[in-house]
């Protein structure tokens, strides 16, 4: 007997599933964050070059990774929604966008906080920070386009096309920014030249990466439930939810 994967591609069946899964990811996110921050702030040794200020990488690096990864996942869902015409895929893309934008903003903010004690300035036009800033623009564009189209189905499709074009563009943007940065040697400080990592640092970082994963999945599931309810509010099964 084969399991029907498409069973969960309908909003009606996915809604309760997401409701059951979300609490686990929320708990995992909280637990892992506490563990990761404990390791990062109390167990990991002080860096001999940067002192304690390096500890921001326990937030900065996972946020930066997630920000890029979520964009690709979001574009993947959006493309699936466009190609297979599955409503749920587009709703997932929609649910991921704010989390991705938040991760990008966190990465930028913590990058600035790190820059202040390390280089004495809040912002440097470093290749990574600049790409991250452009990534934030791409997220804003996706959400702005979706918000400016009234018909949700049309909005899904238009935003999906934009996300796909964005994914094609991301490597080109990243490469061009890197190239631009190496040509202007004045500001060639790299933010990712991480201090030589002690194993506890690495452990703390890994735990934080999993924490961010869990958080992103939890927010996406919670948000997609809201989107499903809003979009399907006139469907019979949603009306039944209230009476149960």
């Amino acid at each position: 007997m084969s399991f029907n994967w498409f069973r969960y591609s309908s909003p009606q069946t996915f809604y309760p599933l997401a409701g059951r899964l979300a609490p686990f990811f929320w708990i995992a996110a909280v637990a892992l964050t506490i563990a990761g921050l404990y390791i990062g702030f109390f167990v990991a040794p002080t860096d001999f070059q940067q002192g304690d200020s390096y500890r921001i990488i326990f937030i900065h690096v996972p946020a930066a990774w997630m920000s890029m990864f979520i964009y690709v996942v979001m574009a993947g869902w959006a493309a699936a929604g466009l190609i297979f015409n599955t409503r749920l895929s587009s709703m997932m893309a929609n649910a991921l966008a704010p989390t991705g934008a938040l991760m990008t903003a966190i990465a930028l903010w913590t990058g600035a906080l790190w820059g202040r004690p390390t280089w004495g300035t809040w912002w440097v036009w470093d290749a990574r920070l600049t790409s991250e800033l452009i990534l934030l623009f791409l997220y804003v564009g996706f959400m702005a386009l979706h918000a400016s189209i009234d018909d949700p189905r049309r909005a899904d499709k238009a935003a999906a096309i934009l996300a796909i074009v964005g994914v094609v563009n991301v490597p080109i943007i990243y490469f061009s920014v890197k190239w631009w940065n190496t040509l202007h040697q004045g500001s060639s400080v790299s933010i990712t030249r991480a201090p030589s990592m002690a194993s506890t640092m690495l452990l703390g970082m890994l735990v934080m990466v999993f924490a961010f994963w869990a958080y992103s999945i939890a927010t996406a599931l919670t948000r997609v439930r809201g989107i499903i309810l809003e979009r399907e509010r006139h469907a019979a099964w949603v009306a039944q939810l209230g009476t149960e």
Partner: peptide
């Protein structure tokens, strides 16, 4: 030209 069971959803109606 033939069409069967055509449906169109506008918003939620």
């Amino acid at each position: 030209l033939e069409a069967r069971d055509i449906a169109c959803l506008k918003g939620s109606r």
